[in-house]
Design a protein around this nucleic acid. Structure first.
Lengths: 254, 254
DNA sequence: ATGGTCCCTTCCGCTCAGCGGAAGGACGAT
DNA sequence: ATCGTCCTTCCGCTGAGCGGAAGGGACCAT
């Protein structure tokens, strides 16, 4: 009786997310048929699903008929644990960093084997911004990534070290043994420096953000495009800000 | 045949959102049974639904078994039209405002009959912050609200003017005719001033943010807790920032 | 005109995913 | 020991969701 293949379990909820995940930073607006293609769902099904999502406010429809993620969803999602609450606690310190350095200041958390950028403060004349809020980046190259990796659970570190370490510039560390030594140093110093490991013209200094119990839950960084002495100049500032943030956060959770 | 009442249409998608909307800024973490109660769904159904949402990453489960909105959802939602894109464009200008005034600077859009706050920059010593990012507030009292209302479609203005104008302080404008005159003035001046209309000790100056075609899509404000002359001092700054933002935004949409 | 290709939308009968009552287990308070 | 509260699993019934088919633009070519 079982003709063809047997599809596993295309549950309703999974399909809803297949649709929502079709949207990416690169293609934030999609037509119905594109949506169906990307979610690999029959057009008819997508049509019905999308109509329901639209009614619920999770999707918005623009004048030309294309769809975008709706503000309603954004509103709900801003309740995510490390979303707004962490952001709000850390923002004043990012501002301090920005005000002192007038360089890009960022805040990120670890999601699996990547950094997820939660917040960024940019000058009006932002230069070569690679990252964006809501964007992701590998753990082994950026300053924030190194801090988060250095303090990640042991198995995560192992997986990353054993995995492919993608090269971005001549300075990117792709040797697992060297990366391991760097991570140890980051734990010792409390600060990570990424010197042209992401792009040829940028350097960043990052420091951990901890919760009340000392667990590292995020990292902040300042990215500069000037010479190497910038790192030295910024380190104490970053460290101070990170310490301050830790205190602020531990104060928050009554 | 049709016994009892006939339930309307408890579609799957609608239920998913009933669950997600059970989370509010006031109660960002919920136990399963609370979730079921708030979504008014049978416990069993909620259990299954929540399990699926958890698998999809839309909900996270903390150590104590309670649920929170997941980062995965936040990531998707940051693609919302007036979410990150507008934020990113406006943030440098909010920073300028903050740097000049060291008062709270905010960015909001209109959602129905309310302001939805998209972004806020706060000093470390934030005083009496009523609003939060992702939070809502009526249109008729705050500076941002007045700007957005003044430039809202005619029918929205009518509905708000005919509706109940909630009083927050002795200065809150609750007379529709007076509010109408104020809105006209806001359109003429290009700036709205809310003088103790929200709380007794705060005043804000707000200006519209327009897209490339001149349509008002958001508003920025500075809130101060000092005397009335602050308004006069800040108005040109706000106006300049708003003009700058408009330009930045129109440049963005190629 | 005519045919082609691309979208989007509506219709409709089949079927299996989801439903929710019932029952059971884990914890804590009285 | 007895209750209350919370979470989880089981299982047979059924209507919500499914998706193929068909229809309706809009926009090209030829």
């Amino acid at each position: 009786m079982d003709n063809e293949e047997m599809e596993p379990h295309p549950s309703r909820v999974a399909r809803v997310f297949a649709v929502l995940e079709a949207f990416t930073p690169a293609r934030p607006t999609l037509a119905l048929s594109e949506l169906a293609r990307r979610a690999s769902l029959p057009l008819t099904t997508t049509h019905r699903l999308v109509a329901e999502l639209h009614r619920a406010g999770a999707l918005e429809r623009q004048a030309d008929g294309r769809y975008r993620v709706g503000l309603r969803l954004w509103e709900i999602a801003s309740l995510a644990p490390r979303g707004v609450p962490l952001r709000e606690a850390a923002l004043p310190f990012l501002e301090d960093l920005y005000e002192v350095t007038h360089e890009n200041a960022q805040l990120g958390v670890r999601e699996g084997h990547e950094v997820l950028y939660i917040e960024r403060i940019t000058g009006r004349h932002a230069v070569g911004v690679l990252t964006r809020v809501g964007g992701r980046f590998p753990l082994h190259a950026s300053g924030i990534g190194l801090v988060l990796l250095a303090h990640a659970p042991e198995h995560v570190q192992r997986e990353v070290l054993e995995g492919r370490l993608r090269r971005f510039t001549d300075y990117t560390v792709t040797d697992p043994r060297r990366l391991e030594r760097i991570l140890a140093q980051v734990r010792r110093d409390g600060v990570a420096i990424s010197d042209r490991q992401v792009t040829d013209d940028a350097m960043s200094v990052a420091a951990p953000v901890t919760d009340g119990r000392g667990t590292v839950i995020a990292a902040m960084s300042v990215v500069a495009t000037a010479g190497p002495n910038v790192a030295v100049r910024l380190a104490p500032v970053v460290r101070a800000a990170a310490r301050g943030t830790s205190r602020a956060l531990s104060a928050q959770r009554k």
